[in-house]
Amino acid sequence: MVTLGDYLLVSGILFAIGFAGVMLRRNLIIILMSLELMLNAANLSLVAFSRFRVGPNGLPNYNAQVFVFFIITVAAAEVAVGLAILVALFRARQTTDVKDISTLKF
């Protein structure tokens, strides 16, 4: 049978992959994607715990799923803002590489 640990393991691997992406890649758009990956890894463990913690009424604990809902909402807003910044940056510098935008002033 599938245990809670299996889900947590998948979530952990996914988080590590996202982390590695943020560390290794220098393309801003890939970094944003890796961030999404990390957020979703967190979502997975939240949902797994929600299903694991069955309340007295026999239903999963939906608090965690509400959190997931919030995370998804905020992540969507974050992506929109991030991509808008990216586009503005690209207009100014014609690059999406983080190495090329290390100066603080434009």
């Binding site: 809670l4 640990g5 947590l8 393991l9 691997i13």
Partner: peptide, 20 residues
């Protein structure tokens, strides 16, 4: 980080239980 997560999960007692 991955190894850390591994260790945490392996030490975490409820992680070996299946879902109710």
């Amino acid at each position: 980080l991955l190894i850390q997560i591994f260790l945490v999960i392996s030490r975490f007692e409820p992680a070996r239980k299946t879902f109710p």
